[in-house]
Design a protein around this nucleic acid. Structure first.
Length: 255
DNA sequence: ATGGTAGAAACTCTA
């Protein structure tokens, strides 16, 4: 079973990229973030034609998440139950016995902002909810844009980024808190190339200059991690015309 | 020096 995740930064703009990528890589599940689409605008017909059903939880202009799957996705949840929030950042469903959680963690903007405090509060609420999900669903994957680089090797210039949003100590501690629930960072289950990143700023030719961060992750419960055979970043779509600023990532599970 | 780029939507906010 191949489970993928991609922050597309507007599905309206990136739909051709997504359809091409589905055709090439044939994931069983694709988690999307930053669809930026109200639910009545979601491209269901195009997804069906590509062989995928879609569950989505969106809003106009900002945020928005979706789960595309070849097989039926059941028991959808579309928000953190105990966290009142108008922003559409989480959707979960079960596909072939695997609980798939798609997250778009708040960016945080800057460490002194209200948005940063919201990011940390959101992560606390998400962790508490995931703890209960892990008890209900042994095979669980949490895929998405975490907006956190966990370690120095996940940042092109850790000294420059130290203390900045996406790499500050409280954010990294929150990420470690998710791992402490028993989740594994799938990417680090395997030897990986140095300077492996998933996001490059559109500005300053960051992609060409390899100035990236690894902020998109697929975390796995212990039984899912035990079945994981590979965890991959596909940077090819970042080279395309009008790319998303994020690369798609995926895991291959022997399930 | 606080820039720059992209997207949505509206002439600004978010990332």
């Amino acid at each position: 079973m191949r489970i993928a995740s991609w922050n597309v930064n507007s599905l309206a703009v990136r739909l051709p990229h997504v359809l091409t990528w589905l055709e090439t890589h044939q994931p069983d599940v694709l988690c999307l973030q930053e669809t930026k689409l109200a639910d009545d605008k979601f491209p269901c017909i195009e997804c069906t034609a590509a062989g995928y059903q879609a569950l989505f939880c969106g809003q106009k202009t900002y945020n928005g998440v979706a789960i595309l799957s070849k097989r039926p996705a059941l028991d959808m949840v579309c928000a953190l139950p105990a966290f009142e929030d108008p922003q559409k950042r989480l959707i979960a469903a079960t596909v072939d016995g695997v609980r798939v959680v798609c997250v778009y963690v708040p960016n945080g903007q800057s460490v002194d902002s209200e948005k940063y405090r919201y990011k940390l509060a959101w992560l606390t609420a998400c962790g508490a909810w995931l703890q209960a999900e892990l008890e209900r669903y042994p095979k669980l994957a949490v895929a998405g844009d975490y907006n956190i680089a966990p370690e120095e090797r996940d940042v092109h210039d850790p000294k420059a980024w130290e203390g900045q949003v996406l790499f500050s100590a409280p954010e990294r501690a929150a990420f470690q808190g998710l791992l402490a629930l028993g989740l594994k960072d799938s990417f680090r289950l395997f030897e990986q190339p140095p300077a492996s990143f998933t996001w490059w700023d559109y500005r300053m030719n960051a992609f060409r200059r390899k100035m990236g961060l690894r902020i998109d992750h697929i975390l796995l419960s212990a039984p899912a991690a035990a079945a994981c055979r590979a965890s991959t970043i596909d940077i090819e779509p970042r080279r395309a015309e009008r790319p998303s600023d994020h690369a798609p990532i995926y895991v291959d599970l022997e399930i």
